[in-house]
């Protein structure tokens, strides 16, 4: 950093090692030394040492780590937050998740609050510690950062694009309040604990948006009789077209389209196709399988909303 004038720099420098400054409990000891000449030679004397102990500052911040609203559907969802002990001493924090936020289209149920025990940033069932009530973190060192998960359940009956928010609150166990509030002898080494600029309280909001995909199947048939017309007579080839249209948002997983071969008709071998591309009749590497006895089945896998897939096959009227 370049500073042209000391007076201008003075307020811009001094980045303490810790966000919360000198660690609580630190002793500040000051001694002055005087040297002088009394005619008999140089002498040195010390002043007494004055000592003050730095008290504990209570500060906390909380932020949502989700990049945006969590896309969800009825069932379980996880919201991720980061808590930072912004104070200068060891402190634990109580956590409270509030799923009833003004403006919610629906309210989730909070199942639990969990700590990212293995530090991988992802909630791992059975590995990450579930906090028991009253949900309280371990004592965190000054500047320590903790990833917190709020486990929620989205109720049945929600519809596509509905949103919900969950507020997570953190409060210093020692206490909170107006900045400057003193909790006597409640800090490190019997020192005081003092509420800092964050009021020793923090709130962060996690958001959910429902992505419900719906699939609509439509089936149509085109007849071609042996005489160039469209009548249903023996020998007529009937081409069935099944469209699977996924609407809403999100994804339909493991979508399989099946259809039986109508009575009085026979599957025309080798005619199964997906989006115009032929699929073999055998159960093999491709998505389709077809036979006169079992009908047709096409595995579309995961289909994103706003996608349409088309399955076609021919039968011959007996």
């Amino acid at each position: 950093m370049f500073c042209g004038a000391v007076a201008l720099c003075a307020f811009a420098v001094s980045a303490p090692a810790l966000a919360g400054g000198v660690t609580a409990g630190t002793l500040i000891e000051n001694t002055a030394v005087a040297s002088y000449d009394d005619g008999a030679g140089p002498r040195t004397i010390n002043s007494n040492t004055v000592t003050v102990r730095v008290d504990e500052l209570l500060d906390v911040t909380l932020t949502s780590l989700d990049p945006g609203p969590i896309n969800t559907r009825p069932g379980d969802a996880v919201l991720t937050f980061e808590l930072t002990n912004q104070g200068n001493g060891p402190e634990a924090f109580t956590l409270l998740a509030n799923p009833t936020v003004a403006g919610n289209d629906f309210d989730v149920t909070v199942r639990a609050i969990a700590i990212d025990s293995n530090g991988n940033g992802i909630y791992d069932e059975g590995i990450d510690e579930i906090l028991t009530a009253p949900q309280t973190t371990a004592v965190l060192a000054a500047d320590a950062v903790l990833t917190v998960f709020v486990l929620v359940t989205v109720p049945d009956g929600v519809t596509d694009t509905q949103t919900s928010a969950v507020d997570l609150n953190a409060e210093a166990v020692t206490g909170s309040g107006t900045p400057g509030t003193v909790f006597a002898a409640a800090g490190v080494d019997g020192g005081d604990a003092i509420v800092g600029t964050t009021s020793a309280l923090a709130t962060a909001r996690g958001e959910l948006v429902v992505g419900v995909a719906n699939v609509a199947l439509a089936k149509s048939v085109v007849l071609r009789d042996p005489f160039g017309g469209a009548s249903a007579v023996p020998g007529t080839i009937a081409t069935f077209t099944i469209t699977a249209q996924v609407s809403g948002s999100g994804t339909i997983n493991d979508l399989i389209v099946t259809d039986a071969i109508p009575d009085g008709t026979t599957y025309a071998a080798g005619t199964l196709a997906l989006d115009g591309t032929a699929l073999s009749d055998a159960a093999d590497g491709d998505a389709g399988v077809a036979s006169d006895a079992a009908g047709i089945a096409v595995d579309l896998g995961d289909v994103a909303a706003q996608t349409t897939r088309t399955v076609t096959f021919d039968v011959t009227i007996d």
Partner: peptide, 24 residues
């Protein structure tokens, strides 16, 4: 008797910094 070369030296404790408005 008067003393001369009187110098008082004060090391700053590590946990503090000199205030910006200290006498220039």
């Amino acid at each position: 008797e008067a003393v001369s070369n009187f110098t008082v030296t004060n090391p700053l404790p590590g946990a503090v910094r000199l205030a910006p408005d200290a006498d220039p």
